[in-house]
Design a protein around this nucleic acid. Sequence first.
DNA 1: GCGATCAGCT
DNA 2: CACAGCTGATCGC
Length: 762
Amino acid sequence: MSRFGGRLREYPALSIDRFDRDNLRARAYFLSHCHKDHMKGLRASALKRRLESSLKVKLYCSPVTKELLLTNWKYKFWENHIMQALKLSTIPFTSYCVYVHRHIVSGFGVPQARTGESSSHMTAQELQVALEVETPTQISLVDETSGEKEDIEVTLLPAGHCPGSVMFLFQGENGTVLYTGDFRLAKGEAARMELLHSGTRVKDIQSVYLDTTFCDPKFYHIPSREECLNGILELVRSWTSLSRYHVVWLNCKAAYGYEYLFINLSEELGIKVHVNKLDMFRNMPEILCHITTDRHTQIHACRHPRDDDCFRGNRLPCGMTCQNGTPLRIISIKPSTMWFGERIKKTSVIVRTGESTYRACFSFHSSFSEIKDFLRHICPVNVYPNVLPVGGTEDKVMELLQPLCRLYRRNMEPRYKPLGTLKRVHKRDLSDTDEDDLFDTELTSARPKISKQQREESRPSETTQPENAEGNMKESTDSYKAPLTYTSLQVDFMDCEESNDDDDDDDDDEDKEDTEKNTAQVLPQESDATSTANCNGVPGDQQEPKADVPRWDTFFKCDRLDESSENEDNFPSSAGAGGSQSLFSDSDGVSDSTHISSQNSSQSTHISEQGSQGWGSQGWDSQMDTVLITSQERNAADFSCFSRAGSRTVPVPHEAAKESQADNSGWKALGQNRSGASDVICDLKSKDSEKEAESGTAHVQEVLVEMPDTSRAPDLDLKRDSQSSSDFEIPLTPDAELPQPDKLYCLYKKLAAGESIVRKPS
DNA sequence: GCGATCAGCT
DNA sequence: CACAGCTGATCGC
């Protein structure tokens, strides 16, 4: 929840996302999106009175936000005081869906022309002032009592948080300031935002007021939107395809932000989503056509004050309980982020929490690594957190963020960053090659290669960007060039660097897939002037993969030398590979015992008595994430076989077990190869009887011995950030220690000499 | 009666 | 704890 007070230090005459108290005196108001915690005071009578007595005070927001706001009669009084800062046709493209799915981009959320209505309600001046696309807007801030005037430019940037959500970039006498509101931007998105750049360089940004909701190493990696979406999609598909009586209830909170989920489910499955209300989308046909108020559909996102009770009574919140006399078979899917962040064990993006309840990973906010990527690119002088993460303090957050800011980068002696010079290689390469990618998960080697021409076209903005955002890193990276030379395997150090780099301001985010991409795509001519200071100077041919050269990424991954601060980078590529996801896939198949997801599932599958309704008291809610490979339908049968708490662990059904063992990717097998399959693969959280829970825990830990929750180890502060990225299928980093240069040197040397290095699990 | 705040509940 | 709400109780105007 935002704790931002509404005002920027640099421009106190503005109020953003807060409209009470001192903000009542603001000369202009800004609303980043339509969530209540950003609308405090927006409908208060005090502000209402202020508007009535002022001709100048305006509220600036995106067209979609305006539409959503004015649909609510409580905010209708704003109608003549809202400025749309961008043309109608532009916001939808850039604001939200662009991060979601290409095919819905083309007009999502575009309020249709409200010609009659608009012209009758908006002043002529407002209509004329409608701004050009991608043109910063000049605003005159007039103090109506003193006549004092201040000009400022504001630019709306897409925030990817919910429909209509934007960030505000202010430029004026006191410097350039970015207020992010709430945002979810994938890695690399900031680099792709033209309006954050002047020419080819990142603008000189004085301060960033940052959404720090998940600025906690606990949320180091959150699966991309597409991964989460695909996980939900396959679960919904597999369930709803069983019969017309199999319905899904999406247990979504009452807030904007789930629309793209509804849209995609509807588009992919041809099933509209039942919602309580849809009039707010009446002018947004791209949403409207995928939702319905007709209860006779298989996907529901309707709500009821006591919807959980409804569900327990096999009733949907809308009251539906059967159709044509046949009882509905209902499963619930609860989108969650924090819940996943709290998991000790690695989980899938879908976790089964009960007989017919699931959690699905879903986030409106950027993960820690995405925040860092964003901030690192902006490289402001100051950063101010808008949100205190759960259990966090401002100091703690600042500690995490400041290393990404300019003064820190300039002044700090770099800590251990043996391979920091490679960062730019990755950065470059990411940007050079993935400009069309919406998700980091698409950054796979399987992705179609981008043409050389495209690369060249995109290059300029990259080559110069470091001058600002990362120019100060040059010194530090240079200072670490020397250690690199003790081996000839410089290329591979790219991976080592990432893996070992524990430092907040130096962990680079491009992943293993990127590394592969690098090896395949780095071209000699990219070693341009900018890159000579760093590893781009490595001749391209050295980057060719060689079978006999140790795979550093593999090495680190398998043997857990990597700091998982880079783990996301080892995250199994999914959505991009072959256009389908592989939630449980291993990116390499090498002795990866920590990838429990599917291959261990046959051992760890933990099915307790669930055949009757009696599970309520027993619950399925513990800290044990295990994997269940079985269908709901089959479960019913299986549960009866394993009823009564006797068998704490049971084998998965043969077929599923075989499948999972065969390809290490149960979900993939399901989603890809078994269209319409009745199997659902997901992590199963099981809390059975207390006793069983205990034994189950023991068992799971035995299976998961490779991934103890080191994140809580008190002596690992330095790499806490990485160590605790234990969630979301990130390979854990048990017993990892901060790699010391000498130790690394030894390891590198051994590897370079072709010796095998096997680290025993502790 | 209304708004603000807080506890409780997802 | 709470992603982002909601409901209901209480208090003051």
